[in-house]
Design a protein around this nucleic acid. Structure first.
Lengths: 231, 231
DNA sequence: TTGCCGTGGTGACTTTAGTCACTGCCCCCT
DNA sequence: AGGGGGCAGTGACTAAAGTCACCACGGCAA
């Protein structure tokens, strides 16, 4: 379970193109960090020390409002990096990061990474690509917040979960929710109660079967229709 | 009014660090393009041909919903570039772009720009910085959409306009709106009617003086208070 | 002049989102 | 066994957002 730093680097998209020697050079400067579920890695506005790679677990990147509400911007799993950005523009972290599962990270300091990028232009190009996909995802979030209802966002999330984690069965796609309603609310940009209510309503309408955290998506086609139809 | 391509390149943040010779090399590959107010440069999903620099005018980057609503993501003025991103990841444009004023642009094809970046690593680092600030702005939009009301977003926009374009006078900061309510709505992620109504309400509450497109911000401090106070 | 179109204002209404308070459940800890 | 604490469900309500319809004004073009 405990990969070496070298292995983690090799598995990370950013460094996929490096040679063994380069990997080892970089590994010498990297350090490890473990986080327990729920632990905060950094808060929004903290000054940026460097970038992180995910070796195992999941890291939630989120904004926190003054009223205490959260909005998740991204969830990064193994092979991903995050906080590349402030490394370059010198600014602070624009959002907070916490572990949504027990996680192992690898850390590379800002200076080391910058130097490395200067020596390896292809890594810099890789960074642009990674940041680019992040940007697309953020635009997607904006689109959803601006154009859709909580109900639709929830449906979209469920369909995605069903596709990724779901197991087909005779009456539909079965899946187990691993997160609380609170967590879903933060991903959807709303509050716990609306998640709960919308799930109930989707069940009442026959799209779902809910039983605690076990859930059966009974009518995928119908749900997809709910996403496109104006009503 | 009509700067040479070289001058435009020199004024663009991305290329600020280049030598004269490099600028001229790049200029040889660039072409010009003019757009009239309202004209569409590209639509969301169009395949990406290259990146654009703004020589004069303003370009609006926006999303369009199936119901016909718009959400502005950015407005780029002289000295800015846009669409750098899909140049690198090879994907399509994630949003549409149109001119909100008559505008002059400079175009650099994807291939030329990529090659140029490979030869000039410092430009690649600059790209990362530019994309980084774009990312911060998008996170800001998400934060506003997720945590604030239309009223608060409008106030924030007005305060910003007052600071940038406003002229102080005895009864407050005077400014002239150059855009329609429709345009404001697209920037705020809402609809025309709410802009109109909220302006009226802010006037009724004594914060503003509205007369057509002329507007006086009478109580800056009060408006700022509206942004922070829960009520 | 006439008529149209883009723009802005507003009333009346529906729908969606969010708040508050309370209940029940389950699990874990001592 | 008892008591918290975190999580989920729901009723009742308020508030914000959005919709629809309509009118008014001002240019601009036929």
């Amino acid at each position: 379970m405990k990969d070496s730093v070298e292995t983690v680097l090799r598995k990370t998209a950013l460094f996929a193109s490096l040679t063994e020697i380069e990997i080892q050079g970089l590994a010498g400067r990297a350090s490890r960090k473990n986080l327990q579920r729920g632990e905060l890695l950094f808060a929004e506005g903290d000054s940026c020390k460097g970038l992180f790679l995910v070796a195992s677990g999941k890291i939630r990147i989120f904004k926190l409002s003054s009223a205490g509400r959260e909005q998740v911007l991204a969830i990064e799993g193994p092979g991903s990096s995050f906080a590349e950005l402030p490394v370059f523009d010198g600014g602070n972290y624009p959002a907070a990061a916490s572990a949504s599962e027990d996680s192992e990270l690898v850390f590379i300091s800002r200076k080391d990474f910058q130097n490395f990028c200067r020596e390896h232009p292809d890594v810099a190009l890789k960074v642009i690509a990674v940041v680019g996909s992040r940007l697309r995802r953020l635009i997607g979030i904006i689109e959803e917040l601006s154009f859709t209802t909580v109900r639709q966002r929830l449906i979209a999330l469920l369909l995605q979960l069903a596709q990724v984690d779901g197991t087909p069965s005779k009456d539909g796609i079965r899946l187990e929710l691993t997160k609380s309603h609170q967590d879903f609310a933060a991903e959807l940009g709303t509050v716990r109660e609306l998640v709960s209510r919308n799930l109930s309503r989707l069940q009442a309408e026959g799209f779902l079967e809910v039983e605690g955290r076990k859930l059966v998506v009974k009518d995928v086609a119908g749900l997809k229709r709910e996403l496109t139809s104006p009503e």
